[in-house]
Design a protein around this nucleic acid. Structure first.
Lengths: 228, 228
DNA sequence: GCTTATTAAAGTGTCGACAATATAGACCCC
DNA sequence: GGGGTCTATATTGTCGACACTTTAATAAGC
């Protein structure tokens, strides 16, 4: 009953999910070539199925295809991460605005409950504010926008790419407590039906997150230079 | 040398372009079912090619596919149009902000030239500020953002859907002169490198455009009611 | 007469084979 | 020895056929 659960009905669906998992979690290296014949033996399906899966990965922006040449897993780069967060800022900002307009009182209550639950976990010791909770929070607001384009773009496309950056650049669960406070304020704005503020707070929240990641990248690069 | 030109290298490319044209311009009705076998005879290609084309149309959001059932052209609705413009507002607003940051002086100069050219055409009589000019203007700013995700989402996805609404609901070239002034102000903000203002003006520009369309839809609906 | 099974038709999903294109290596020319 | 061409190989693009699912029409039961 995961909010992000998708169920595979066709063989191409399963292969798509498997491939996506392997790409996002690094089982297939970023920048690697995706050979259709090779993958069809590896996943024991026909090339047609692989092709369909690759096509879908392309529309998620996880791979890039060139005619008559083939598909490669996207290359990760600091610049790419920044561009991704710029888009997130725009889209999730709008999602927060629309959520303030369109979420039902019930949904807002449930969202508050979720935050309280997170608060208990944070207070209760080791278990810090994990990525799953963060994703869940953002996911609910995106759904709350009730805008199908927005929902589709963010949950089918951008989020997997964000996760790929997080996993592969090794930046899980940062900014624990501050992010939590920011979430509180966003929900408050939504519950006040203050569209303007909700959008602004969400945009700042994502901007802070981006800056945090950029700093982490910079220091990591510095550390690597020292070691060398 | 059209800015929007794409060249088809493979047979699936051609079929994709043909199908997209037919869908956007109404040759295939919105909501219609896309039978793979039927289309493969109509366009004289194999079903595999049709399937690939339909997959790409799905990632443009022009068709919706369900497993084991088939694909349908998206249904147009006032609500869908509003949702589309909400996304446009978010994305193009961010594009304008980034354009103010990233466009070169040359590109800004060229953009001003484009506006002057449009101004001459407007002043010069009949030829009013056409859709092509409007699209061209927005297209340059999107490109000026230098953000690949943004560029891809807007030019490959959203713009064709917007065009489909424009064509099929019969609302070409409205708001001639006012839109022109808004364009001027946006370019001014970009040339001043005022990100904040550029984004705000672009968002308003798109909001006005949406309101204008909504009113047109409402009055059209009223007229239809009178005729009945 | 209405509901529920059964079955035939049509459509999508999957497969293996062939055609067209790109890549790599050998060979030749300068 | 460097550059270019040609050939062989590997990979992608396209095709037609088969398998499975859905749908609708028909028949059976109440």
């Amino acid at each position: 009953m995961n909010l992000l659960s998708e169920q595979a009905v066709t063989s191409a669906d399963k292969t798509f999910f498997l491939l996506r998992k392997d790409i996002v979690e690094g089982g297939i290296a970023s920048g690697a070539k995706l050979s259709e014949t090779e993958l069809s033996t590896k996943y024991t399906v026909s090339r047609a199925v692989i092709r369909e899966a690759i096509n879908r990965l392309e529309s998620c922006r996880l791979v890039e295809r060139k005619a008559n040449i083939g598909a490669r897993v996207v290359a990760l780069s600091p610049q790419g991460l920044i561009e991704l967060y710029e888009v997130r800022e725009a889209l999730e900002g709008m999602a927060a605005r629309l959520a303030a307009r369109n979420m039902t009182e019930q949904e807002i209550t449930a969202l508050n409950d979720l935050l309280n639950q997170h608060f208990q976990e944070v207070k209760g010791g080791e278990s810090y504010y994990q990525e799953a909770g963060d994703v869940d929070f953002h996911y609910r607001i995106i759904q709350g926008s009730k805008n199908r384009h927005l929902i589709n773009m963010l949950t089918n496309g951008i989020y997997h790419l964000v996760r790929m950056y997080r996993v592969q650049l090794g930046m899980a669960g940062p900014r624990v407590t501050t992010a939590f406070d920011e979430h509180r304020h966003i929900v408050k704005a939504i519950s006040n039906r203050d569209e303007e503020l909700a959008e602004m707070l969400m945009r700042r929240h994502i901007t802070y997150s981006r800056i945090n990641i950029e700093q982490k990248l910079a220091t990591d690069a510095g550390n690597r230079r020292e070691q060398a």
